[in-house]
């Protein structure tokens, strides 16, 4: 376990090597939060009501902040693995005495944490100024638990797409489409509560709702029933996708073709 911590650690150090870069990269969230605020301010004002589908403008904004932090801060693992296959550096990763997937997990976490922290900090400051103070402190740990599950689901999806690079030349389109599914069915740009009922049902029977909506919604309203539903959903989908990932890894390894033979 110590070695995975060391991998996590060096990635952490690496992403902190250029603080200015980290900050510039995170400025993106200011742009998005500002424009979200314009959209929802106008939308709420036009409806003439303070609460829409159980959410206030402030709720909506903090919901979007958490979703956006996760989206912009999650590791771009699919891209990383396919790049490692393309340039052959995968060779070094496979001939070290560690589990390849656990390596990717710890290195992804080390890369992701400082970014998510910075995004949340910058985006949170702007959101506070525009829409009001953040949710109650008691909501935070609840959201955090769901955030871990959501992050792991993203990891599984990304790693699966990355492993596809073992056998296929081009994995970028899969990544785009997975991302757009988390946008639409995960409720990243619009809280799922605003969706028609049938679409909410669809979304909640797929993994996407547990990857975005879950932690974001719990952050603004930590309802126990919802918490149970989200955690259960994450558990089920993590088992399915995790199993699939292990299977894909052992299969994919046999078919790996590395450039520069």
């Amino acid at each position: 376990m110590k070695k995975y911590f060391a991998v996590f650690n060096i990635n952490l150090v690496n992403s902190l090597a250029y603080p200015a870069e980290l900050v510039t990269r995170s400025l993106m969230i200011l742009l998005f939060m500002w424009i979200f605020y314009q959209l929802w301010r106008v939308t709420f004002a036009a409806s003439g009501s303070d609460v829409l589908n159980g959410l206030t403008l402030r709720d909506t904004m903090w919901y979007l902040l958490l979703a956006e932090t996760l989206e912009l801060g999650r590791p771009r693992l699919a891209r990383v693995i396919s790049q490692q296959v393309k340039d052959g550096s995968i060779a070094y990763l496979l001939n070290k005495p560690y589990d390849f997937l656990l390596y990717q997990l710890s290195s992804g976490l080390g890369e992701s944490l400082p970014r998510m922290g910075m995004l949340f900090l910058l985006g949170g400051a702007l959101t506070w100024v525009m829409a009001g103070p953040p949710p109650d402190l008691v909501n935070w740990p609840v959201a955090l638990v769901a955030l871990v599950g959501a992050w792991l689901l993203h990891f599984c999806f990304n790693a699966l797409i990355g492993l596809a690079a073992f056998v296929s030349e081009e994995v970028a389109p899969y990544e785009w489409i997975y991302q757009k599914f988390t946008f639409v069915l995960g409720g990243m740009l619009i809280p799922l509560d605003f969706y028609p009922a049938w679409l909410q049902t669809v979304s909640k029977s797929l993994p996407f709702a547990y990857m975005m909506y879950g932690p974001a919604r719990l952050f603004v309203q930590p309802d126990p029933a919802l918490f149970a539903q989200i955690i259960l959903g994450q558990f089920v989908w993590l088992s399915v996708l995790g199993g699939l990932l292990l299977l894909a890894y052992s299969r994919g390894l046999r078919r790996l073709a590395i450039n520069g033979g």
Partner: peptide, 9 residues
């Protein structure tokens, strides 16, 4: 070499 290190089958 890649076969001998276990990277390629």
């Amino acid at each position: 070499i890649k076969i001998l290190t276990g990277i390629l089958f």
